[in-house]
Simulated assay, not measured.
Amino acid sequence: MMSRKMKVLLVVGGCLLTLIAFVYFRGWDGEEVKRDSIATVQELAKHPIYGKYSFGETDKVIDVGMQPLGLTISLISEAMKRDAILKAALAGQGLEIRFHPFFKGTESNFFLARGDLDVVLAGDMPTLTAASVYGITVGAQNRVGLNSIVAKRPLLIKELEGKRIGYAFGSTAHHNILQALHTEGLREADVRLIQLKVSDLPDALDHGEIDAFAAWEPTPTIALAKFDDFVIIHRGLASTYLYFSNTFADRYPKAVHQIVASQLRTINWLKRQKSNLRMACSWAMQAGKDFTGRDMVLSMEQYASLIERDLLTVENVSIIPRQDLETDGRLFRVP
C-alpha cells in the first residue's frame, strides 16, 4: 500500500517536486540565513504575539494557523471563520474551530510540530518542509500566483551580487530568491540575505536598509502603491496549500472533508457575485490591520483585483524549458 508521505507528494504535485530537487540537491549555504533561522525557532515559543495564544485544551478544538498578510490565505480564512455550515457540521461531531494568525508559514509549522495546531494554510515552501519533516495530509491547493522581487531601480538578477536582499526565511518568496539567483549562476553566499517581517520589507527598502526584497502578494503591490520609485525586477510562480497534521487527519477524517469543503464553498461564494468578494476583502483587510496595527495602503478595488487574478481566474502559464531558448535550442531551429 502507498505510504501517506508518498500520497502527500503526489497530491502536492510537480511544483513541490521541483522544490525538493532545488532544496536537497542545491542546499542552503548562507551563514546569515542559518543563524537567523535558528534564532527564530528558539524565540517562537516566547514570541510577544504567539506566546499569548490559547490553543485548544482538548482534542475537540481544531486549531488553524493562517496568515493575515497572505493575500488568498487571509481571504479564505476570514470567510471560513464565518462559514455557518462548517461550524454546524463540526459541532455535530462535538468539535469547534479556532483560527490563529501568523506572519509566515514556517512559524505555523513550529506550532504544528509541537501539536498546538492541527491545520495550516501556507505557501509551497512551508508545505514542502512540513511534508518532509513532520508528515502531513494536503487537502487542497488554494492559489497559484506570482511572488515578486522589488527594488528601487531596474536591475538584472545578476546585478544583485553583493546586494542586501530582504526576505522572510523559509517562505515561498525565499525560494523564489534562491531560484532566481541560481538561474544566473549565483549562490546564496554571493548576496546578503536579510531576514525581516514581510510587513517591514517596503519601509526597509525605502530607508536604504536593503537593496531589494522578495515577497508574496499583497506586499509587492502595496509597496509599489506607496513608493513611486519602486519597481518589480523579477516574478516567480508560487502556490499555497491547506494541510493537516497526520494525527488529526487520522483521528477526524470527516472533519478534514468538511474543512476542505468549506474552502471550496468559499471560492464558489466569492465567484457568485462582486458584493461577496468585496465583503470578504473588507474582512481580510481588517484582519491585516488588526494583526500589524497598520492600515492597508491598497484600495478595496486593488485588493479585489489581486484576488481575482490569483484565486478566481485560472490562467494558462507557458513554461518554456531554458535549453529551448538557447541560440541552438528548438525555437531557433524552427523553419
Results as ranks from 00 to 15, higher is better:
residue 6 M to E: 15
residue 8 V to W: 07
residue 9 L to S: 13
residue 10 L to Q: 13
residue 10 L to E: 14
residue 13 G to I: 07
residue 13 G to L: 07
residue 15 C to I: 14
residue 17 L to E: 14
residue 18 T to C: 02
residue 21 A to C: 08
residue 22 F to P: 00
residue 27 G to K: 00
residue 27 G to D: 01
residue 28 W to Y: 13
residue 30 G to W: 05
residue 38 I to Q: 09
residue 38 I to T: 10
residue 38 I to K: 11
residue 45 A to I: 15
residue 46 K to C: 06
residue 47 H to C: 03
residue 47 H to I: 03
residue 48 P to S: 06
residue 66 M to W: 15
residue 69 L to F: 04
residue 72 T to D: 09
residue 76 I to Q: 07
residue 79 A to S: 15
residue 79 A to L: 15
residue 81 K to T: 11
residue 87 K to F: 02
residue 87 K to N: 11
residue 88 A to M: 09
residue 89 A to Q: 15
residue 89 A to F: 08
residue 90 L to I: 08
residue 96 E to N: 11
residue 99 F to A: 04
residue 99 F to K: 06
residue 100 H to I: 03
residue 101 P to R: 06
residue 105 G to Q: 05
residue 107 E to K: 08
residue 114 R to A: 13
residue 115 G to Y: 06
residue 116 D to I: 01
residue 116 D to C: 13
residue 119 V to R: 08
residue 120 V to P: 00
residue 122 A to N: 05
residue 127 T to K: 02
residue 130 A to G: 02
residue 130 A to E: 03
residue 130 A to Q: 01
residue 135 G to M: 01
residue 137 T to I: 08
residue 140 A to V: 03
residue 142 N to P: 00
residue 142 N to R: 04
residue 143 R to N: 11
residue 152 K to T: 15
residue 152 K to G: 09
residue 153 R to G: 09
residue 154 P to Y: 12
residue 157 I to M: 10
residue 158 K to D: 11
residue 161 E to C: 08
residue 162 G to Q: 05
residue 165 I to D: 02
residue 166 G to E: 06
residue 170 G to W: 02
residue 170 G to K: 03
residue 172 T to R: 04
residue 174 H to P: 02
residue 178 L to Y: 10
residue 179 Q to I: 06
residue 182 H to R: 08
residue 183 T to G: 10
residue 184 E to N: 11
residue 186 L to D: 01
residue 186 L to F: 02
residue 193 L to D: 05
residue 193 L to T: 05
residue 195 Q to S: 15
residue 203 D to C: 07
residue 206 D to R: 15
residue 208 G to D: 07
residue 216 W to S: 14
residue 221 T to H: 04
residue 224 L to H: 03
residue 225 A to W: 00
residue 225 A to Y: 03
residue 228 D to V: 12
residue 229 D to M: 09
residue 230 F to W: 01
residue 231 V to I: 11
residue 233 I to Y: 03
residue 233 I to M: 02
residue 233 I to K: 05
residue 236 G to I: 01
residue 236 G to Q: 06
residue 237 L to P: 02
residue 238 A to I: 09
residue 246 N to W: 00
residue 250 D to T: 12
residue 251 R to G: 02
residue 254 K to H: 12
residue 254 K to E: 12
residue 255 A to N: 07
residue 257 H to S: 08
residue 260 V to H: 08
residue 261 A to Q: 10
residue 262 S to E: 10
residue 262 S to Q: 10
residue 263 Q to K: 13
residue 268 N to D: 11
residue 272 R to E: 13
residue 278 R to K: 10
residue 279 M to K: 15
residue 280 A to V: 14
residue 285 M to Y: 00
residue 287 A to Y: 03
residue 290 D to T: 12
residue 290 D to A: 11
residue 293 G to R: 08
residue 296 M to Y: 01
residue 299 S to P: 06
residue 299 S to A: 09
residue 302 Q to C: 07
residue 302 Q to F: 07
residue 303 Y to M: 12
residue 307 I to Q: 12
residue 312 L to G: 07
residue 313 T to Q: 14
residue 314 V to A: 13
residue 322 R to Q: 12
residue 322 R to V: 08
residue 325 L to C: 12
residue 326 E to M: 13
residue 329 G to S: 09
residue 330 R to V: 13
residue 331 L to I: 15
residue 332 F to S: 12
residue 334 V to N: 10
